[in-house]
């Protein structure tokens, strides 16, 4: 049984055994933060680049609050900040809308990258841009971030499985 993470939602956990999935990423960004010492995982379904207020009720919805919020929650579970690798999917340009919105996908991507760079979090793999939808799955058993699309092959974002390295950290 997988956990589906809807728009503006997130999940954090340690020693996660269940797959976490974000279905149908268009302009939204699916962000995975994988911590490789204690085995803490965070995942957020980001919708927009910037929060209109400093402390929004749904922090995972906005890139500028999602990143610090996920990190804060992961640290609560014992995550070591400089052992965190990020994986990204989404940020596509799906809809051409007349109006002020612009390319939300691109703005989301830029915002997420900026928040990660500010905190020196390395992006280990990404599948972003284009004009098509993606599903981002955290395969818990293998420690892999996998992107699937309609009508094309799966893409593995994790060059090596992201697994905790602390002796006794997490359990295989």
């Amino acid at each position: 049984m997988s956990l589906a993470i809807g728009l503006g939602k997130y999940a954090v956990g340690k020693d996660v055994r269940q797959d976490w999935v974000i279905y149908g990423l268009g302009s939204c960004i699916g962000l995975i933060l994988c911590e490789r010492w204690e085995g803490v995982l965070g995942m957020a379904h980001i919708v927009l680049p910037a929060s209109p207020e400093p402390d929004p009720p749904e922090p995972a919805r906005y890139a500028d609050t999602a990143v610090p919020f996920l990190l804060q929650e992961m640290e609560r579970l014992g995550a070591i900040p400089n052992r965190i690798v990020a994986f990204l999917a989404g940020g596509a340009r799906m809809l051409e809308i007349n109006g002020a919105v612009g390319d939300i996908g691109r703005r989301n991507l830029e915002a997420v990258r900026e928040e990660l760079a500010m905190r020196r979090i390395r992006v280990g793999g990404e599948s972003v841009g284009g004009t098509f939808g993606r599903t981002l799955r955290w395969n818990a058993a293998e420690g892999l971030a996998i992107v699937s699309r309609f009508g094309a092959a799966d893409e593995v974002l994790t060059p090596v499985p992201c697994r905790p390295v602390r002796p006794g950290g997490g359990q295989a």
């Binding site: 728009l7 279905y23 149908g24 990423l25 268009g26 302009s27 939204c28 919708v47 927009l48 596509a92 799906m94 809809l95 939300i104 996908g105 098509f132 939808g133 993606r134 599903t135 309609f150």
Partner: peptide, 12 residues
Amino acid sequence: DMIGALMGSLAA
């Protein structure tokens, strides 16, 4: 495409 990608982008 996946309906989620379309509707999620509209939701945004």
